[in-house]
Design a protein around this nucleic acid. Sequence first.
DNA 1: TTGCTTTGAGAACGTTCGTTCTCTATAGTG
DNA 2: CACTATAGAGAACGAACGTTCTCAAAGCAA
Lengths: 199, 199
Amino acid sequence: MIDEQVRERVLNAADRLYYGRGIQSVGMDELRRASGVSLKGLYGVFPSKAAIVLEVLDRRHAMWNTGVTERVARAETPRAKLLAIYDYLSDWFSDDTFRGCGFINAFAELGSISPEVAERARDHKSGFQSYVARLVADAGAHQDLAPQLSILAEGAQTTAAIAGTPEAAVHARRAAEILIDAAMIAGAASASESPLAEA
Amino acid sequence: MIDEQVRERVLNAADRLYYGRGIQSVGMDELRRASGVSLKGLYGVFPSKAAIVLEVLDRRHAMWNTGVTERVARAETPRAKLLAIYDYLSDWFSDDTFRGCGFINAFAELGSISPEVAERARDHKSGFQSYVARLVADAGAHQDLAPQLSILAEGAQTTAAIAGTPEAAVHARRAAEILIDAAMIAGAASASESPLAEA
DNA sequence: TTGCTTTGAGAACGTTCGTTCTCTATAGTG
DNA sequence: CACTATAGAGAACGAACGTTCTCAAAGCAA
């Protein structure tokens, strides 16, 4: 079997198992069974379980990015683009394999004993926050809106994960609408005020 | 040593270690060292590590409840009581032992393999949501506000934990102010409308 | 003192983990 | 056909885990 195929199979199985049951709860033997790749083949392509974990996180990061940006791209107005984030979350929460944000989970499990995992989680979250900040800037809203919307998305994920129900996404969306409207007014006000103040 | 003292020592050490480094990462031998209670004494008072974990979670739940209700009680207006939640979070995030919500962490680590841990996390979160809903009702605001404020608090916790900085609390607070103001108007409107509709 | 009970330190047990090694079967090459 | 290289299955290894056991020390009653 080609190395690329092996990598794909292993990472797919690892993502499913680690996300579904936790990283420390899934041993290499189970990963072997689930991926159909022998232990030897497995260690021929990855140097260690830790390396697999990091690659799984990197793939998840890329998946999340493409998923959310595609959904946002389908919306037309800047306001709709911001709200599209919560529609994406809503769909995700309704998937019956949903078990919260993989990065929050990995951070909770390993963040304090694996600097690499902690770094992946930080990068993932700060990347999302920057993305939201860009959308907020495009909408011409006050920049305070960006962390507020990020926090709402974050909270919706853990709330939905622990409750086991998807309705947190619609609550977050409704809150986002209110915050966006408030920040559009504030953003428009400060955008028209500050040039005048300088003039 | 009296059993009650042993319990106290063990649970204090266990809470600190499990919260700081994760549950699965802390073995019974380390708990023995940190608590100063021998393995025999430890197993004389607790039947298993799993039982210690559950008691730690129960204590943390009680601590959180008293902490937040005390802080809320010190605020005077219904609106200030709602915002006091985020002041409490702000102080907590600034504590340098802060490492996110212990229930989210425990859920991420063990939720899918320990139904008892999952149940504790669910109960903890739904208890908080009910509490917020009561405060919202006292404020006469629209009930949609309750899940919105809960989600903000939730998101602030994970955001602060992963970023390692406390400013998520003030962002959440500012968002909460906006949502509260919007829901007070809506709540007042529906409170004055629905009796009229029925009359 | 003597004898009995309790205690703590840590060895021991059985299991599981991540990782490596062995052995066998197979496939490809001459 | 023989020979070699490869790859899979699973045993083996050393470490760590949760839990129990051993044994010696210490306290206490008589």
